[in-house]
Amino acid sequence: MPSPHGTSRLYSMEVDAEINAVRFRWTGQPTGEEFRYGANQLLEFVRSRAVAGLIVDARNVTAHQRSSIEWLVREWMPEVAAAGVEYVAVVHEDDLIARTEMEALNERFRQAETAPLFFPTDAPADARKWIAERDRSTTSLYHIGQYLSSLQLFSFS
């Protein structure tokens, strides 16, 4: 899928190896198409990194289209969970609209069959701390499975 015009300037992403997470930051307000494209680029990035945590800085996003939120909950988040992400922290603006939207999104994730733990906050430092605490306190079954399969204890040849 080709990039919608200007999309690459709307976000940045990097690995934070210290906390086993990917940090993704929206740098501008995406359209619905740009939102899905950026989210799918993030999904591919996460799949190639095998990280347990994801921090999304959405402070530059003033509103989400309802259809984009539905897609995020129903289609995208289960794919993120399947990629091994167990914890998602979202940094939002410190205002009533953003808090209300994040609380509704948090409730949707709690009801979803397959979704990582979700932590909305208006403080980037709190998001990073929350992910770091999860990474230190839990060794995921996914990562144990990845490790055991890498040992090749059994040979079927």
Results as ranks from 00 to 15, higher is better:
A123G: 12
P78L: 07
D95T: 05
V46G: 00
A17E: 15
V73Q: 00
S157T: 15
A81K: 00
G6I: 07
R128F: 04
E33Y: 05
Y147R: 13
I144L: 11
F118D: 05
I19S: 02
S157H: 15
L96K: 13
F109M: 00
I55M: 04
R128N: 06
G32N: 12
Q29Y: 04
V51R: 07
D135I: 12
R66N: 15
A39E: 11
E18N: 15
R47M: 09
W26P: 01
T121A: 02
L105P: 03
W76G: 00
S12A: 11
I69Q: 10
A127L: 04
V88D: 02
E33D: 14
W26K: 08
Y87I: 03
A63S: 12
N106P: 02
R99V: 12
Q29V: 04
R136G: 12
L43R: 08
Q29R: 04
A89Q: 06
V61R: 04
E107F: 08
A89N: 04
V85P: 01
D16S: 10
R134N: 12
R134V: 03
S68F: 09
L96N: 13
V80D: 00
I55D: 00
S12G: 08
A17L: 14
L42N: 03
D135T: 15
T27Y: 08
P120R: 00
T138C: 06
I97W: 13
R25Y: 08
P78W: 10
S67V: 15
L105N: 02
W130R: 12
S155H: 14
N60P: 01
A115P: 03
W76D: 01
G53V: 00
V51L: 03
S12E: 10
L105E: 05
H143S: 09
R108G: 03
I97G: 13
T139Q: 09
E79D: 06
A125D: 14
T27L: 13
W76R: 08
R134Y: 05
W26C: 07
N60H: 06
S8I: 08
Y147S: 13
M102L: 03
W130V: 06
A21Q: 01
G32F: 11
S68L: 10
E33S: 11
A58N: 00
P2Y: 09
S12L: 07
R49Y: 08
E75Q: 09
M1D: 14
S8G: 06
D16I: 07
S140L: 09
F45Q: 02
